[in-house]
Amino acid sequence: MNFNATLIGQMIAFGVFWWFCSKLVWPLIIKGLEDRKTRIADGLAAAEKGQHELQLANKRSSEILHEGKEQSKTYITQAQKRADEIVEEAKENARREGERILTAARAEIDQERQMAREALRREVATLALAGAEQILMREVNRDVHRDVLNRISAGL
């Protein structure tokens, strides 16, 4: 245990290294630690925010899904109704068309019958005239008795 200048040397060295540590080492490391702390805190806050937003988004998406389902249901019912209507309409149209065709056909048949009757009448008149000619043996003048003949054919 003999003391010498090493004591003073050590004190000076201690002062120097303390100064170095407190000026050039300590603040940098503490700053780094603080920065990391805030960064971690920020990260955690952001994560929490993200989680919250995710929850909101989940809720929103389920809402939208629900809404969509409802909407599609109404669309389907509407479409069904419309389809029913269209079918009804088509049925009605078809019925009307059928009726129209039927009436037209009837009218045509009437017309045909009329024409046939007309032709028949004319033929009967001719036939009756020919018969009368045969009977009267050419005595009868066709032009003189035309009025009579016409009256007969009209009476048929």
């Binding site: 010498n4 060295a13 050039l24 080492v25 940098l28």
Partner: peptide
């Protein structure tokens, strides 16, 4: 009194240099 323990002083300063250099590098 005015003599120096070269070994103590040398190791002391050497080890302190290791300490500050490592910490400075990391800092």
């Amino acid at each position: 009194f005015w003599s120096l323990n070269v070994d103590s002083m040398g190791w002391s300063i050497g080890l302190a240099l290791i300490f500050v250099m490592v910490f400075r590098k990391v800092a």
